[in-house]
Amino acid sequence: MPDTILVIAEQREGKLNRASLETIAAGQAIAAATGWALEAAVVGASVGSFANELAAKKLAKVYSVESAKLEPYTPDAFAAGLKQFIEAKQPKLVLMPHTYQVRDFVPKLATAMGSTVISDCIGFKHEGGKLLFTRQMFQGKLAADVSFTGNSPWFATFQNGAFRGDKAEDGASAAPVETVKVEIADGVVRNRPQEVFKEAKQAVDLTQAEIIVSVGRGIKEQKNIEIAKQLADALGGELAASRPICDSGWLPMDRQIGSSGQTVAPKLYLALGISGAIQHIVGMKGARGIVAINKDSEAPIFEIADFAVVGNLFDIVPPLIEEVKKAKAGN
């Protein structure tokens, strides 16, 4: 029997996550490179409809792994239920999207199985029969190819956007679907989660902005935010920030761009003093034009910038404001 890759898809609020399809696409690519079989599973109290939806994709088999105790999500139930399922099926490699939910339970699951997770990967390589997973290190300044050195099952998670969900191939015919009931004993689940909620409605919708001027640590002090504001005003754009700025209370949380904030794709994203940690990049890499000003020539933001200035933002922004005003006045 060939080795098997198992993708654990994630569903929430009645929908499969977009990241789940991206992970299917990753699984299909690894299956094509290795010749391994590809299967998928959905986990929950009653998830047959999601399994049926996944079955349209090019997969050898789809499982719905079910127990009443899997709803609502808890790390205890997910680790216990999936351990049972994976021990029975013995996949070589288990893939999941690197969502907040997966981060919450997958290290526990792997540890319970005496195995390990290569987390937050952005790609893979198959070289000389060896499977390597590429991930960012040092906040994206460096990349690493990482291999498994222990026994399977191996676990790996993929960063949002690492693969394209719309590239997940459909199968010639629907994949067979099987429901697997897992037993989770009373007392296993210790956490008691309450309803998921959203804080007060976001006041600023940055997703609609065509121009965004965004500030990071390089702005140094709260009072310096003013020059970024002036630049945003001159350009007719919105002001935004990376997480540390909002953590410090210098700008409200609803102006935060990144994995824990808003995801934007403006015509212009002008990054001032933003180093470009992964968590920030995922929120703005879809921008049509990216201009970055940073004093650190190695800042990862330069990897994705169209136009880059290595220098002190306090020297460059004031004349830039003047030039923008002049250009606007000339129109």
Binding site: I118, V146, S147, T149, I304, D306, A308, V310, G311, I316
Partner: peptide, 23 residues
């Protein structure tokens, strides 16, 4: 249970134009 085989500077995916000169 896992090993860094190789650490490297990531390949640029974008053609970045660096703008230089006095401010």
């Amino acid at each position: 249970l896992q090993m860094i085989e190789k650490l490297y500077i990531p390949q640029k995916t974008k053609n970045t134009e660096f703008i230089e000169g006095p401010p």
